[in-house]
């Protein structure tokens, strides 16, 4: 099999491959996502890996329930989403606390640092508070070199200590999306 990292374009940043390798090392078997541009390289690598079961969701809350079902069946999973998707997950996250499910989500931020689309700002600014209100442990990453090690420790506390954990990957890492200016 060709290495899944070979699907990356030459100009891809290093941190998505760092996440991918960490997920493999931590025995994450199910990857569910609603796509985000910030996660595109990671998603492509997961699709190229025939050892990973990749599920395209229609809405992020499905990924919370999916992760719990995976754990019931003995598999570790990760939910990839954009910060706006966190709002879609709120009530479903009640299952994490009530049933003490381990849970790992990697959230690429919008509405965060230098956002150019005002519609993204309310949810982006509320993301951390919403996750903490639902009982998740939140690690935020602002430097590309910290992404891989942070995901590694998030997976450790999630699956060795059975905690629900979110890693927020800030727009300082991803870069703010460019918009065509009007006027």
């Amino acid at each position: 099999m060709t290495s899944p990292t070979s699907v990356l374009p030459p100009d891809a940043p290093a941190w998505p491959a760092d996440i991918y390798r960490t997920l493999r090392e931590r025995d994450i078997k199910q990857v569910s996502y609603v796509p985000d541009a910030g996660h595109k390289h990671l998603i492509n690598m997961c699709h190229a890996d025939n050892q990973m079961k990749v599920v395209t969701l229609t809405t992020e809350e499905e990924g919370v329930a999916l992760a719990c079902g995976a754990w019931l069946g003995g598999e570790r999973s990760v939910l990839l989403m954009q910060s706006s998707g966190v709002g879609n997950c709120i009530n479903m996250m009640s299952m994490l606390k009530t049933c003490q499910f381990p849970f790992l989500t990697l959230v690429t931020m919008r509405g965060d640092f230098g956002e150019g689309n005002p519609w993204q700002v309310p949810m982006g600014q509320a993301t951390k508070a919403v996750l903490e209100a639902m009982g998740l442990i939140v690690y935020k990453v602002e430097r590309p070199e910290d992404v891989g090690p942070t995901v590694d420790m998030a997976a450790q506390i999630a699956y060795d200590s059975q905690q629900p954990v979110a890693v927020l990957i800030g727009q300082k890492v991803i870069g703010a999306k460019k918009f065509v200016k009007k006027g």
Binding site: Q30, V55, E61, V64, S77, N91, S94
Partner: peptide, 19 residues
């Protein structure tokens, strides 16, 4: 379940894939 309304199907999918 006794909450998380709307989640049963997706939970079943994760279980089916794992087993």
């Amino acid at each position: 379940m006794a909450g998380a309304m709307g989640g049963a199907c997706a939970m079943g999918l994760g279980l089916a894939l794992a087993q």
